[in-house]
Design a protein around this nucleic acid. Structure first.
Lengths: 149, 149
DNA sequence: AACAAAAAAGACCTTTATCTCTTTTTATGT
DNA sequence: ACATAAAAAGAGATAAAGGTCTTTTTTGTT
């Protein structure tokens, strides 16, 4: 569904949301270790996210990546489109171009409600909100145990 | 989510389910045209499906691909694992290795019900059943309008 | 001013997915 | 038997994803 790149990006954003601020920045190396992602690759991704206003950064000593208030108002959907480009959640499960409620593919009825849910959760919820929820539920903890197949 | 290869494979299987029998076979070229998929690529996929008992074929004049009764008892899940290998639906949405109900990632609660539904529909339903349902609903018609992004 | 620590930028490399082409084998009809 | 029509098999080609490495720029510290 999502590319590795998107997964890494989302995980880092959620990590930054709960671990950084304007006064507490973290550098790539640390983030990559925490998330167990390839450091150089993550650096590229964070660079891209920064260029698109989804993450903030400062260079030099005590510099690093962090989320400011503006960044926190973005959505995870913004992250995905920034990294993967295409509108992943609007694609037909079986690859048909003309698949919608009126002209559904054999899998449409099964998949459509899910896509709807993903959209509302990922597009209409800010990163701040998403991170806050994760904190409440304690789900953010699992960010560390990673493995991409 | 699914690779192009899996999507092509599923579409051809559903097509074969509604258009072929032991006495009515269709050759790759026709299938590829109907489904608007790359012919040579589809040939490879059908070959692989045949080698794994998901599709039947005979060579020579009036030969082609078709589904016999045994093939129809397989599931779409079999198709996906045959082509994509990995267990796509058991992977964490955010790429964590230790993601489950007791130790969920931030997206788990959102995604878990969907994976459950996919599994029951794709794994516990035979291709014959799936195709019959599609026929009832008329969804099989849209198989022709394809575009993979 | 010099140094050090960080991101930014850019050039690569590797692997996997996607897709093509050619040759070989097998079955059928005449 | 022979011609033909189909899949089977195998070798590549191309593109995209995934990932690395080196150099440059910026910024803070001494």
């Amino acid at each position: 569904m999502l590319s590795n790149a998107s997964k890494y990006a989302i995980r880092s954003i959620l990590y930054l949301a709960t671990h950084t601020s304007e006064t507490k920045k973290i550098n790539v190396k640390v983030i990559a270790e925490e998330l167990e992602t390839p450091p150089s690759f993550l650096a590229k991704l964070l660079q891209q996210l920064t260029n698109n206003g989804l993450v903030s950064s400062t260079k030099g000593p005590n510099g690093g990546f962090y989320l400011d208030e503006k960044n926190r108002k973005k959505s995870l959907w913004d992250v995905i489109t920034c990294i993967d480009g295409t509108d992943k959640f609007n694609q037909c499960f079986l690859g048909l171009s003309e698949c919608n409620d009126r002209n559904p593919c054999p899998a449409h009825a099964m998949v459509a409600p899910f896509k709807e849910k993903i959209l509302t959760n990922f597009r209409d919820k800010t990163i701040a909100e998403f991170a806050a929820e994760s904190l409440e539920k304690g789900t953010y903890l699992t960010l560390k145990q990673t493995e991409i197949l």
